[in-house]
Design a protein around this nucleic acid. Structure first.
Lengths: 225, 225
DNA sequence: CTACAATTCAAACGTTTGTTTGAATTCGTG
DNA sequence: CACGAATTCAAACAAACGTTTGAATTGTAG
């Protein structure tokens, strides 16, 4: 009848499902997004998800993996470059931080789909579901290991536990920042929805992270200063 | 048969539901927690939730409000005290930060239930549901307004937008830190589940937040240094 | 064109969801 | 005790969920 309804050009259905799922997961969360919402937005049959991905859980993983894997690969390459440029010497902490955080910030700033995915990813970190937790552990295993080692080499006098705490805090700040967190967005007046919000945020976040990383360690009895 | 099954001493049912719901919401999220799970853990009849709270959404709000309202009231009082001690002069930024963040950290460090609630609250910030978003906006309206004003008075040379960004980042770091974020917890080796994890984390987080707050502002073209 | 594999489709599957009902029970009070 | 209000209870409600089915359609090689 109309322009090729039948011919979805091989793999088109898969991609339309992934795109629709990413949008809806970002907007409503995993649990609150039904298969019918996904297939409805994608314009495909309800059974297509189970045919192409096997289950809803598998679809969730594929939606995340599709963008997260290239993202972490870029992080690895960025660290490779930094370490190569440093010769045998440790990489400067600020450069390590930049290598880790510039990729997601660029992704979020690059396109609507990128911002949408980073918002989804930020929320995914707080998902309690074991299936998602296990998935994230697997996907982040290598990259976190590499960066942890780089930090330890760059800051040999700082106990490893302190480094891990700081890394934990930095991840939280970035994660929340790109996730938008609409509620406090309204309160603080920070509009993360606007297209260029990420470009304006990125340098500010980077400065904040480095400031936190360089902060004095708390004393043994918990005093800060 | 056993010790007063029938006499739940007036209001006991309400509290048992709230406690059970808080535990399950923190463990599985709002959507993934069913009414039958809640009433099952609480040991009450399925219909009790709708009788005492009206709906599941209303229960969610009450679970959050029960602990969040006193928490934000303590924040207000802490700022009142700091401003009174400063006379008419602006309150030191580090003291403002401490006034805002020490209450939730103490709550998280004080008891298992406190840690459980703060974990739930941290996750709640990333909930996309409009009902939860609106609830949070209402609950945080006053306290965020007060602290925003205090920051602006303490840092008159810093543009208000920069202050809001920093506040946004600090909230994110704290939120993620207390929420646990099990996935990266495993990767970084930071165990947030242990009872004394919050006591050890609090001074470290506070130092990180102050370091981030004091970081140099990025240049007009986005350069940090 | 034929035949086989891949994909799409409408329909239905059994469960689980939040909520409601109306009777039974318990509580507070005169 | 006795009464009306408050609460509990087992049972059922319609709706939505993820998934499966088997036939119909489409794509691809021989």
């Amino acid at each position: 009848m109309d322009v090729r309804r039948s011919t979805l050009s091989a793999g088109e259905t898969r991609i339309r499902i992934l795109d629709a799922a990413q949008t809806l997961f970002a907007a409503h969360g995993f649990e609150a997004t039904s298969m019918r919402m996904i297939t409805g937005l994608a314009g495909v049959n309800l059974a297509a998800v189970n045919y192409h991905f096997g289950s809803k859980d598998a679809l969730v993983q594929e939606v995340l993996r599709r963008r997260l894997r290239p993202l972490n690969e870029r992080r690895i390459r960025a660290l490779d470059l930094a370490e190569a440029a440093a010769g045998g010497a440790p990489v400067k902490p600020s450069l390590i931080v930049e290598s880790f955080f510039s990729s997601p910030l660029e992704l979020a700033a690059g396109s609507d789909a990128g911002r949408e995915f980073m918002r989804l990813l930020g929320r995914t970190f707080t998902e309690p579901s074991p299936m998602i937790r296990d998935f994230l552990v697997t996907e982040y295993e290598v990259v976190v290991g590499r960066y942890r080692e780089a930090f330890c080499r760059a800051l040999p006098t700082v106990p490893v536990e302190e480094i891990l705490w700081r890394l934990h805090f930095m991840l939280g700040a970035m994660s929340h920042a790109v996730a938008g967190v609409d509620s406090l967005q309204v309160l603080t007046g920070v509009k993360v929805d606007e297209p260029d919000a990420m470009q304006r945020m990125a340098p500010r976040l980077m400065s904040f992270l480095l400031g936190g990383l360089r902060a004095p360690l708390p004393g043994p009895d918990g005093n800060i200063e």
